[in-house]
């Protein structure tokens, strides 16, 4: 893995993205009327001071080590080991796909589809087990929310627009 100042590039990515977002946040706050912009300006300014400190304290440099020791010991802790990044991205992508499916085909249909797919592909279960579990969970979900709690489950973009 490529390193910058003694630390993996990946570790800089998230605080870096938050820093960029903060710059945009602060810049937009300047354009608000004084009363509406006061709080965002204070928050933005504080973050603009703290995020670079957090970024520097990640590095294996003299100022980085000094900051880590005195202000930000958590930056020295290794990130949680959840295994390969690809596996993590795939697991999160399944949730995003589920949300998209809910939007497109509706909640009642998306739940069993997601459960079956997730059990089969992420969990490595047999098709039989995946389909039975999906059918049971989908039915219970529909009965509980639609009938038990009187929630009008979203019918999906296709049904809503056609």
């Amino acid at each position: 893995m490529r390193q910058i100042m003694g630390t993996s590039v990946w570790r800089y990515v998230t605080p870096g993205i938050v820093l960029i977002l903060t710059i945009i946040y602060f810049w937009m706050a300047v354009t608000f009327p004084a009363d509406a912009g006061l709080m965002p300006l204070i928050i933005g300014a504080a973050l603009l001071i703290m995020l670079p400190v957090d970024l520097i304290s990640l590095s294996d440099t003299k100022p980085g080590n000094w900051l880590r020791e005195r202000m930000n010991p958590a930056a020295g802790e290794p990130p949680e080991d959840f295994g390969p990044v690809r596996k993590q991205v795939v697991a999160m992508a399944w949730v995003v796909a589920f949300g998209t499916l809910m939007f497109l085909v509706g909640i009642a249909a998306a739940v069993p589809l997601y459960i079956a797919g997730s059990l089969r592909h992420l969990g490595g279960k047999s098709w039989r087990a995946a389909l039975i579990t999906a059918a049971i969970v989908g039915l219970c979900n529909y009965l509980l929310f639609q009938f038990g709690l009187g929630v009008d489950l979203y019918p999906g973009w296709f049904l809503a627009t056609h």
Partner: peptide, 19 residues
């Protein structure tokens, strides 16, 4: 086994969030 539990909890959570 979380491979069974997790998708069920995620499904209930997202439907709960909608509700």
């Amino acid at each position: 086994d979380v491979q069974i539990l997790a998708p069920i909890i995620i499904a209930i959570s997202l439907v709960g969030s909608y509700s």
